[in-house]
Simulated scan of single mutants.
Amino acid sequence: MLKEERHHLILDLLNNEGKLIATELSSRLNVSEDTIRRDLRELDGMGVLHRVHGGALLKGASTVKFEEKFNQAPEAKTHIAEVGLKLIRNDQVIIIDGGTTTLTFAQQLPFDLKATVITNSPPVAVALSHHPNIEVVMLGGRLFKESLVNTGIATIQALEDIRADIYFMGTHSVHPQTGISIPDQEEAFIKRKMVNISAETVVLAEAHKLGTASTYVAAHVNEISYLVTESCVSSNVLIEYEKLGITVLQ
């Protein structure tokens, strides 16, 4: 079998099965484990899969500009936001981080909600500026223009003395084994800190983000309280998260 044929077959198997184990793949394709590891390394370098220890996972969607991403699947984002609102109560301290789904969530918050919202996302802060009973705490730092969030040591330090009731997290990839992961390391540090200071963490994720992985882990699955996703996701996919103690809402 030519290398190109093998690469196509590996990608077909990954798309159908969601993950690949190198030792099993070696037997299935009747080639050495060294050959499989080299194939996975090359395919990872091409950006078409995410290589992990012992195998490979589906790669999260390619990064696009915030404005373009915001206009993708607006109905799905709105439905996810509406479900997430069921977890909100008056007088909570709420963290909402950056992302187009979390921005949609912020835009859906009831106008009469009384709460404190802490965010490192300028678009989220602006969206809440006209809510009369929401106190908005804007975290400073260096603006990461790709995601429109503030990051860096100043953001971490601002979170040190905060204890939140609930954290609504936007993400790039969600996987039952690797957890929550994103392409940027500094943003991952911020998310990890937000998880650590929050009583509950809610991940808002569209269907295409499930079962994928990215470069930097922001949270492990056992740190997630709720996963809110689209109603189209099958129970066979979601049961893997529910087995880990995560409450899944659709």
Rank of each mutant, 00 (worst) to 15 (best):
S26R: 09
S27E: 14
R28M: 07
L29Q: 06
L29Y: 05
N30F: 03
E33N: 14
R37Y: 13
R38Q: 13
R38S: 05
R38M: 02
D39H: 07
D39T: 11
R41I: 07
D44G: 00
V48A: 01
R51D: 00
H53G: 01
G54F: 11
A56P: 02
L58N: 08
K59G: 01
A61T: 12
T63P: 02
T63W: 02
K65G: 09
K65L: 15
F66T: 13
F66W: 15
E67D: 13
K69G: 04
F70R: 15
N71K: 15
N71R: 14
Q72F: 13
A73P: 01
P74W: 11
E75L: 13
A76L: 13
T78N: 06
H79V: 13
V83T: 14
G84R: 05
G84S: 13
L85N: 07
L85I: 11
L87N: 06
D91S: 10
Q92P: 00
Q92K: 12
V93A: 06
I95E: 00
I96K: 04
D97Q: 08
G99Q: 09
G99M: 08
T100P: 03
T101A: 02
L103H: 09
T104E: 13
F105H: 11
A106P: 07
A106L: 06
Q108C: 12
Q108I: 04
Q108S: 15
Q108T: 14
L109H: 09
F111N: 04
D112E: 10
K114N: 11
T116F: 00
V117N: 04
T119C: 02
T119Q: 04
N120F: 05
N120Y: 11
P122I: 08
V124H: 00
A127E: 06
A127R: 06
L128K: 10
S129C: 10
